[in-house]
Amino acid sequence: MIDEATLDRAVTAGILNAGQREALMALASQNTDPASRSDDTATMSVDDQMRLVGGGNDIFVTVGIVLLFSGALFALQAVLPSNSMMLAGLLAAASWGVAEIVTRQKRMRLSSTLLALAFIASALALLSDFIGTRFSLPDTINAFSLLALRGDAIPIGLTLGGGVIAAATLYFVRFKVPVLAAIVAIASTGLAFLAAMLVLYDQMVSGSIAAPAPDQLAEVLSSALIVPLLCGAVIFAVAVFLDMHDRERQTVWSDCAFWLHVVSAPLLVHPLFILATGQDVLAGRIEPGMGASILLGVMIAVFVLVALAIDRRSLLAPTLAYFGSVGIYYLVNGAANSTGIPPFALILVTIGAIVILFGAGWQRIRRLIIRPLLPTSLLNRLPPIKA
């Protein structure tokens, strides 16, 4: 069997490209003897093949990385001045250096993810220290101090968000770690939200629109949810695009799509929940009426169908977790004041049944629902349905 180092040399020599290397590694990791595979493995969703953990040795090395960097952090904090930019710089360099072995040579997946996050955290600390020094930020940040920073808002936002995107892109080009796709998506969403808030603020200052009265703040905040909703839709579209160009989920781009689905789900679900049910985001009222509960049920059904079609439980899991956590919060806080069955209890029952049912037979459900529901032309572009 050809080892990973040999495949890496083949890529460097131009014998293989990166996609072919990933496909060969995925093929080698699969058991080619059909008789030795269980029914569960034969019908496994391609979403379950998201390559996150590379085995026991990967976990072992991950523990070593945590211990190494924790010890280094405490040691450097004792030697270097407090809030030193050198500390973040050293940790970023160490993350990169260890990744040259763990990621580039050994291709350890969980360890690589941890190192990538450590690098981004170090880069974020560096950018934060630079912003604090360059723009003389006040010690305490509140609404009034933020308004006073309006003139520097754009360079601060571009430095922080753009710097994180640049660092993640540079690291991805070198090491191809999929979780960085989520980092780029989150930073881009933050920049979009900042731009929308600055436009709204400038319109109020110029008199183009009136400042909202106190009783209108809830409506304004609900309207502001359009921004993360649009960002979630864009991120979801990018993830689907990557999925449709890698139907068998054999390359690193499908793993990037996994993380993009994880990010897009809450960005889509929370705004849709607030806008569809008319919840008061200031008062914190989360109990929908019967009509809104029915609408929530329809929303869950739509998300379920979409997740089944694209074969991504990574989209469905945050969705169900969000609805479930909101429902549990309501039930705990409303149990003492209610003697009847709250409408949201029905949603919780539905979510619990869906989780158990789908966990036991995801591919069978895909085959029964999606195959007769969608035309063949679309099915041929979606992840294959296992027989």
Rank of each mutant, 00 (worst) to 15 (best):
F69N: 00
S70D: 07
S70N: 05
G71W: 09
L73I: 14
F74H: 06
F74Q: 10
A75V: 07
L76Y: 10
Q77H: 04
Q77G: 01
Q77S: 04
A78D: 11
V79S: 11
V79C: 03
V79R: 09
L80F: 01
P81H: 02
P81Y: 05
S82W: 05
N83F: 08
S84W: 03
M86H: 02
L87P: 01
L87M: 08
A88E: 03
L91P: 03
L91Y: 01
L91T: 11
A92M: 07
S95P: 04
W96S: 05
E100K: 01
E100V: 06
I101D: 08
V102S: 03
V102C: 07
T103Y: 12
R104P: 07
R104T: 08
K106T: 05
R107T: 06
M108Q: 10
R109K: 13
L110I: 05
S111R: 00
T113R: 10
T113N: 11
L114M: 13
L115D: 08
L115F: 03
A116F: 06
L117K: 01
L117V: 02
F119I: 06
I120L: 06
I120C: 07
A121C: 11
A121D: 10
S122F: 06
A123D: 05
L124T: 08
A125S: 13
L126E: 00
L126N: 00
S128V: 14
I131W: 02
G132I: 10
T133L: 14
R134G: 03
R134S: 13
L137A: 02
L137N: 09
P138C: 06
A143G: 06
A143Y: 12
A143V: 15
F144E: 09
L146D: 09
L146I: 12
L147T: 11
L149M: 15
R150M: 08
R150K: 06
G151K: 07
G151Q: 00
D152Y: 14
D152S: 15
A153D: 11
A153P: 06
A153S: 09
I154Q: 11
I154M: 04
I156V: 09
I156H: 04
G157S: 15
T159W: 12
T159H: 02
G162N: 00
G163F: 08
G163D: 06
V164R: 02
V164K: 00
V164L: 12
I165W: 02
A166R: 01
A166E: 05
A168D: 11
L170M: 10
F172M: 05
V173R: 12
R174W: 13
R174Q: 09
K176L: 13
V177H: 04
P178C: 09
V179K: 00
V179M: 09
A181H: 04
A181M: 09
A181V: 02
I183T: 11
A185G: 05
A185I: 00
S188K: 03
T189E: 14
T189G: 15
T189H: 09
G190T: 03
A192Y: 08
A192N: 03
A195E: 15
A196W: 15
A196E: 10
M197S: 14
M197A: 15
L198Q: 13
L198A: 11
V199E: 15
V199C: 04
L200D: 15
Y201D: 15
D202M: 05
S206H: 12
G207P: 12
S208E: 15
I209V: 14
I209D: 01
P214H: 08
